[in-house]
Computed example of a mutant assay.
Amino acid sequence: MALAAFMLLLLPVLQGCAIQVTFDGASIPENVNTASVQLFENRAAYVNPVLSQTFTEGLKDRIINGSRLTLADGTGDVDFSGEITGYDTEPLAIQADAVSTETRLTVRINVRYENFKDPEKSWESSFSAYRDFPSEQNITAIEGELVDEIVEELTENIFNKAFADW
């Protein structure tokens, strides 16, 4: 009973806070209402032709679904830009006969986050994620699924750095 009374007393104080915390841990100041995501150009040596669009749309979706922010047509209160800097496969688990049993697909992204409401919170950082798959599997058959998983991990990490104070 004492806890309930304490919570009732604390509620007006919390309502005056200038930061909104969502259920997924995002803490977004109340004066930040819009976000913009620029097209992430693919500057990797090997270019997956759909990765640029897939990543850009994935980041937009993560922001829309994980926060109260709306996407701005131009530049929002916060802005994400950058480029895809790596898209590589490398053999793993080399056996005695010099044959790889697993291969790793790695995607690297450079991200610039600009917070126009609080410029001190702006940053630039690199992110990478990978998925391993059996080498005997043809990458073209599973590439779309691997890329979707990697994009989901990357966008989650970027979102967390921007809005969850990681």
Rank of each mutant, 00 (worst) to 15 (best):
M1K: 15
E145V: 14
L92F: 01
E90R: 09
V37M: 08
K121D: 14
I158C: 09
V32Q: 09
L39M: 12
D132N: 13
A35G: 06
I139C: 09
L146F: 03
A26G: 10
T56G: 00
P119Y: 07
N110M: 14
A72Q: 12
F6Y: 15
A2D: 13
L146Y: 04
A5S: 12
P29K: 03
T34C: 02
Q20N: 15
E152T: 13
A129M: 11
I139Y: 05
T101E: 00
I84R: 04
S135Y: 00
L105V: 02
L39G: 01
K117P: 10
V99L: 15
L8Y: 08
N31Y: 03
D79K: 14
N42L: 02
S52R: 02
G66L: 07
T70A: 04
I64H: 05
T155H: 06
Q38A: 15
G16E: 09
T34I: 05
I150W: 06
N31S: 07
V37L: 12
I64V: 12
K121M: 13
S122R: 07
E41C: 06
T85M: 03
N157L: 11
T89D: 08
V111G: 10
I63W: 05
F40L: 06
V37W: 00
I158Y: 06
M7R: 11
Y46G: 00
S36Q: 00
V21C: 06
F133D: 02
F127K: 02
L105G: 05
E153D: 15
E156Q: 12
V151Y: 12
P119W: 03
D165V: 14
V47E: 12
E153V: 08
S81E: 08
D61T: 13
Y46N: 07
D73H: 13
K161V: 11
M7I: 14
V21P: 04
V151F: 11
A4F: 08
I150P: 11
L9W: 07
V147K: 02
A5H: 04
S52K: 03
K60G: 05
E120S: 15
A45Y: 03
D165L: 15
